[in-house]
Design a protein around this nucleic acid. Structure first.
Lengths: 294, 294
DNA sequence: CTATGTCTGGACAAACATTAGACATGACAC
DNA sequence: GTGTCATGTCTAATGTTTGTCCAGACATAG
């Protein structure tokens, strides 16, 4: 329970306005102490944040209050990132994503990603929205329309979003031998690898995600420790190919019965023999891996 | 059993205030000697520490007292944000976290993190569970009990978890000039920076998170583009100090009116003058930044 | 004995909240 | 243009909360 000052700090609505919103729209109804002081709970803070977000997004306070009052508590967070009903030409989340990166506006980027991921299944959104958005971002960066900082902010937001999806996908808790997903040494482009890890989990596979820059020796140790059924290496850049090949060779030489697969934009350049090459679409890659395992 | 002075020393509450809290809220009820002196037991100290922590965290004393009075003794240490040095964190989720890293089991790591984050407010969990868990992980890695792959998997899971918290923090403040949080060039330890970014958002600040390895030129460009009110650099390792100093110098030279702050374990090594050094606890760091901005 | 610690009960100022209403600004209709 | 409405901000008068302080009496340790 928070006093009005704390509520103002946490919601970003100043004290006077907070009282005005309560008086005029009844958007919150804080309980009172014996002496009449308002006390706000966490849901009230969420409602105020949502209202603040809607008003900042161009809604009129009256309309915003109506929506906020009608929303269930679990809808409030999504509500806060909505933009005005009659938003201009930039309703395309891909364009909004690049535009947010241009302005280095984490919130706008998050809103664009929210829009994308609300529009379909994870796999489709990644293929049809996220990848094009990242391509557009790359173009904008090459043209100098987006600074490195904006690209960083966008990439960090994308990884957060994928990480949330990865966590949310965690259901198949059969303690069977996992699939290990990660990047070779010095490689740092996690997006495709994490997207694949998520899709694999969503398909019911048991996945451990190792992240970027995993040394060859650690891949071997990881396979030994976990008894992994498969290892999936992400190869996004040409410069990562050599490192990936070395990991593949090392794993092959360690004589375990693990399936070694590579995916990602530059996976075709990996020239080792005993390697499964995953196709470039998410669902097909998961299907290929599953087929190989059976 | 402690006299009132000892109790004051151990709880961080001065003698007069301690009596006032007892009189006004009945938060503790020390037994008395024959001559009427108060004698405090360990539980009383815990209650006072918990109350101190809540009040420092922005709660009104009355509300804090209600919570503390209602809490069972075993819940007290979880209530206090700044607890006494001697009460170590509960070992369960921390041990489970390290154990999951040992086995390179993403699921187990995620479960341990779930447990941690279910046990209290974000700031408290980060300080009292997550950081100790990461320290334990570092020790285990130094001892060879955990492989690099396990450390990678754990670090990736932690970043996912923090990313979710960052998104959930809502960023409901108005579209005013943001605070930029990120790491200097070549620095890659995002945990503390992302935790701070999240805490700052939760406190109602508008935060854009730029992520790891942001070049000095991009910091300047980002400040220019966003009109940022403040820049917060994370400095986790000694090797990042030089890069951070260069960023600070570059930003200072760019003549904008931005507040430059550094935080993280090695932030004390940053020797530039015009820099705000943030304390090492999350809530205190946010408070310091906010105070500097006002 | 002396210095220090503690007790009670009250007092006080500063910070914080309350209400009702006023006011400036901007959007929009006529 | 004028009028109206919505909205964010501000004021004034009043009340509450809370950290700190004081005076005088009693207790304890060296």
């Amino acid at each position: 329970m928070y006093t009005i000052k704390q509520a103002a700090l946490r919601s970003g609505v100043n004290v006077a306005l907070l009282r005005a919103w309560e008086r005029r729209y009844g958007v919150v109804a804080p309980i009172r102490t014996d002496s009449g002081y308002r006390l706000y709970d966490d849901e009230a803070i969420s409602r105020l944040q949502a209202m603040r977000g809607l008003v900042d997004g161009g809604w009129s306070p009256r309309q915003a209050a109506e929506h906020v009052a009608a929303a269930r508590p679990d809808e409030l967070h999504a509500l806060a990132k909505q933009s005005a009903p009659e938003d201009g030409p930039s309703t395309d989340p891909v364009a909004a994503f690049v535009e947010g990166a241009t302005r280095i506006d984490s919130r706008a980027i998050e809103r664009a990603l929210d829009d994308m991921f609300a529009s379909g299944s994870f796999e489709r959104v990644v293929e049809e929205r996220l990848y094009p958005a990242l391509a557009a971002l790359g173009d904008a960066w090459a043209d100098g329309r987006v600074d490195v900082a904006g690209e960083h902010a966008a990439a960090a937001a994308v990884l957060r979003r994928l990480g949330m999806a990865f966590e949310a996908a965690g259901s198949a808790s059969r303690a069977d031998r996992p699939i290990l997903v990660g990047l070779p040494p010095d490689a740092r482009h996690e997006v495709a690898a994490l997207a694949f890890a998520t899709a694999a989990r969503r398909a019911g596979l048991s996945v451990s995600y190792l992240g970027a820059d995993v040394p060859a020796a650690s891949w071997i140790e990881a396979v030994r420790l976990t008894g992994a059924r498969a290892v999936v290496l992400g190869v996004a850049l040409e410069q990562d190919v050599t490192a990936a090949e070395q990991v593949v060779t090392a794993l092959g030489g360690s004589a375990s019965e693990v399936v070694i697969a590579v995916g990602g934009r530059r996976s075709e350049s990996v020239r080792n023999g005993a390697v499964v090459r995953l196709p470039n679409t998410l669902s097909a890659a998961v299907e290929t891996l599953r087929a190989t395992l059976d």
